Lab assay of single mutants.
Amino acid sequence: VTLFVALYDYEARTEDDLSFHKGEKFQILNSSEGDWWEARSLTTGETGYIPSNYAAPV
């Protein structure tokens, strides 16, 4: 399992994006889409796309 942590807060701009807060942890589901990764929040259980430059490996 690849775990990442949010470096900044992010507010979803589309219904496919995932809103999150700094410090929140994610499981990365798909990182082959370039700058946007499909991720599941370990806090909320929700799935959506996150900007890859807002996350770092745990």
Rank of each mutant, 00 (worst) to 15 (best):
1 V>E: 13
13 R>Q: 14
7 L>D: 02
31 S>H: 11
11 E>L: 10
44 T>S: 10
11 E>S: 10
25 K>A: 07
21 H>I: 12
33 E>P: 12
42 L>M: 12
35 D>S: 10
33 E>D: 15
26 F>D: 00
2 T>H: 11
50 I>E: 00
8 Y>K: 07
22 K>M: 08
50 I>L: 04
47 T>V: 14
17 D>A: 15
29 L>N: 05
9 D>K: 04
49 Y>G: 03
31 S>K: 14
2 T>P: 11
46 E>H: 12
21 H>G: 07
26 F>E: 00
18 L>F: 09
24 E>V: 04
24 E>W: 07
45 G>H: 06
36 W>S: 06
9 D>W: 11
54 Y>C: 09
43 T>L: 13
2 T>S: 11
55 A>E: 01
5 V>T: 06
46 E>T: 08
51 P>G: 03
5 V>G: 01
8 Y>I: 06
3 L>Q: 07
36 W>T: 06
31 S>W: 14
30 N>T: 08
16 D>W: 15
13 R>S: 10
22 K>E: 07
32 S>C: 13
33 E>Q: 14
58 V>K: 04
56 A>H: 08
18 L>R: 01
58 V>C: 11
12 A>V: 02
7 L>W: 04
50 I>C: 03
35 D>T: 10
52 S>A: 14
36 W>N: 05
2 T>N: 12
6 A>E: 00
51 P>A: 03
42 L>I: 10
10 Y>H: 05
55 A>T: 12
52 S>W: 14
19 S>G: 07
21 H>S: 13
27 Q>C: 13
41 S>K: 14
54 Y>W: 08
54 Y>H: 07
10 Y>D: 00
55 A>Q: 04
11 E>N: 10
44 T>P: 01
24 E>R: 01
46 E>N: 12
50 I>N: 01
6 A>C: 04
43 T>R: 13
37 W>S: 02
13 R>I: 11
47 T>C: 10
57 P>S: 07
21 H>M: 12
55 A>I: 15
29 L>K: 06
16 D>I: 13
47 T>D: 04
8 Y>Q: 08
54 Y>V: 05
4 F>N: 00
7 L>M: 08
5 V>F: 10
14 T>E: 08
46 E>K: 15
16 D>M: 15
26 F>G: 01
42 L>F: 07
6 A>L: 03
44 T>A: 01
40 R>T: 11
53 N>W: 15
12 A>N: 04
14 T>M: 10
56 A>Y: 09
56 A>P: 02
45 G>I: 05
30 N>C: 11
51 P>W: 07
16 D>S: 15
33 E>L: 14
40 R>V: 10
6 A>N: 00
53 N>M: 11
34 G>K: 12
41 S>Q: 05
45 G>V: 01
16 D>H: 15
11 E>I: 14
28 I>F: 03
52 S>F: 10
36 W>L: 08
9 D>M: 04
54 Y>E: 01
6 A>D: 00
31 S>Y: 13
47 T>R: 11
58 V>I: 13
58 V>F: 12
56 A>W: 09
8 Y>D: 06
42 L>Y: 07
39 A>I: 05
56 A>R: 09
35 D>A: 10
16 D>Y: 15
9 D>R: 04
49 Y>C: 11
46 E>G: 07
17 D>R: 15
2 T>A: 11
13 R>A: 10
15 E>T: 12
31 S>N: 12
8 Y>S: 06
52 S>K: 14
39 A>S: 03
13 R>D: 07
29 L>W: 07
40 R>Q: 08
34 G>C: 11
39 A>N: 00
29 L>M: 09
4 F>P: 00
32 S>W: 11
7 L>G: 02
44 T>W: 02
48 G>P: 00
41 S>F: 04
18 L>P: 01
3 L>H: 09
22 K>S: 06
10 Y>K: 01
21 H>W: 08
40 R>D: 00
55 A>S: 06
44 T>E: 01
20 F>V: 04
9 D>A: 06
5 V>W: 07
44 T>I: 01
57 P>E: 07
58 V>N: 06
20 F>A: 01
32 S>A: 12
1 V>L: 13
32 S>T: 13
26 F>Q: 00
27 Q>W: 15
40 R>N: 03
37 W>D: 00
22 K>V: 10
41 S>W: 02
23 G>T: 01
10 Y>L: 03
55 A>F: 15
14 T>H: 14
14 T>V: 06
4 F>M: 10
20 F>P: 00
9 D>S: 08
55 A>W: 05
23 G>F: 05
15 E>K: 13
48 G>Y: 04
4 F>K: 02
50 I>T: 01
38 E>F: 15
57 P>D: 04
10 Y>A: 01
18 L>T: 02
34 G>Q: 11
58 V>Q: 08
24 E>Q: 08
15 E>V: 11
3 L>N: 05
43 T>V: 10
4 F>E: 00
48 G>H: 02
49 Y>K: 14
55 A>G: 06
27 Q>E: 14
36 W>H: 07
47 T>Y: 09
2 T>Y: 12
43 T>P: 01
35 D>G: 12
34 G>I: 10
45 G>P: 01
5 V>I: 13
7 L>T: 04
15 E>S: 13
5 V>C: 08
38 E>H: 14
23 G>P: 01
14 T>D: 11
25 K>L: 15
45 G>L: 07
27 Q>V: 15
29 L>P: 05
36 W>V: 07
43 T>M: 10
33 E>K: 14
6 A>T: 04
30 N>G: 10
35 D>F: 13
5 V>A: 05
57 P>K: 07
48 G>L: 03
38 E>A: 08
16 D>A: 14
51 P>Y: 08
27 Q>L: 15
58 V>D: 09
9 D>Q: 05
43 T>S: 12
2 T>E: 11
50 I>A: 00
6 A>P: 00
53 N>I: 09
42 L>C: 14
46 E>Y: 10
28 I>M: 06
24 E>D: 15
28 I>T: 01
12 A>F: 03
15 E>F: 10
20 F>M: 10
2 T>V: 13
46 E>I: 11
21 H>C: 13
14 T>W: 13
52 S>H: 08
30 N>E: 07
16 D>P: 04
43 T>H: 10
32 S>F: 10
26 F>H: 00
